[in-house]
C-alpha cells in the first residue's frame, strides 16, 4: 500500500521547476501529482510519477538532490465532508500527518489525496479495517 514519492530539493531561483519537469518530460515520465513546500531560501518539490525509479535516476544524473519518500494514497469520496471524514478517522487512529496534497486526476469517481505520515507501516496497519480506502501502488502510478 506504500506509494513512492519523489522529493526534490530546489533553491528559490527561476527556472529550477521548469528544469525538473523538462527532464521528466524528455524521459517520457508522466507527473501524476505534485506539491511544493516553500521557505524563503528553498522549496521542496514532491512528485508522484509514472516511473518513480527512473525519475529518481534521471534527476540524480542531472545533479539534483533527490530522495524517494514513502507515502500513502487515499481515496476520498467526492462529496461535501468527504475529506473531513477521512481526516477524522486518521486522527482517531492516532496517525500523525506530516503533509498532504491532492491528486491532479481527471476522470475519477473519487478524489485522491496523498498523505505523508509518521510511522508509515504502523499507519497502514491501523487504517486497514477502517473506512479509509488506501490505493495500491501500481494503480497510483498509472492513474
Amino acid at each position: 500500500m506504500k506509494v513512492k514519492q519523489i522529493s526534490v530539493f530546489l533553491e528559490n531561483k527561476s527556472g529550477r521547476l521548469a528544469k525538473v519537469t523538462r527532464i521528466l518530460g524528455d524521459n517520457r515520465i508522466n507527473i501524476r501529482a505534485l506539491s511544493i513546500a516553500d521557505t524563503t531560501d528553498y522549496g521542496i518539490l514532491r512528485l508522484i510519477v509514472s516511473e518513480p525509479a527512473k525519475a529518481l535516476s534521471v534527476l540524480k544524473a542531472e545533479g539534483f538532490t533527490v530522495r524517494e519518500t514513502e507515502v500513502i494514497a487515499v481515496e476520498v469520496p467526492d462529496q461535501p465532508g468527504g475529506l473531513a471524514g477521512v481526516l477524522e478517522e486518521i486522527q482517531a487512529k492516532g496517525v500523525n500527518i506530516e503533509y498532504m496534497y491532492a491528486f491532479v486526476g481527471k476522470s475519477l469517481e473519487n478524489a485522491i489525496v496523498i498523505f505523508r505520515v509518521e510511522e508509515i507501516d504502523q499507519a497502514i496497519a491501523l487504517l486497514k479495517n477502517t473506512q479509509v480506502k488506501l490505493l495500491p501502488e501500481e494503480r497510483v502510478y498509472s492513474l
Partner: peptide, 11 residues
C-alpha cells in the same frame, strides 16, 4: 544539501 541530509518535510 546532500541526499543524506535531505528530507521531504520542511520541518
Amino acid at each position: 544539501v546532500s541526499e543524506a541530509m535531505f528530507a521531504s518535510e520542511v520541518r
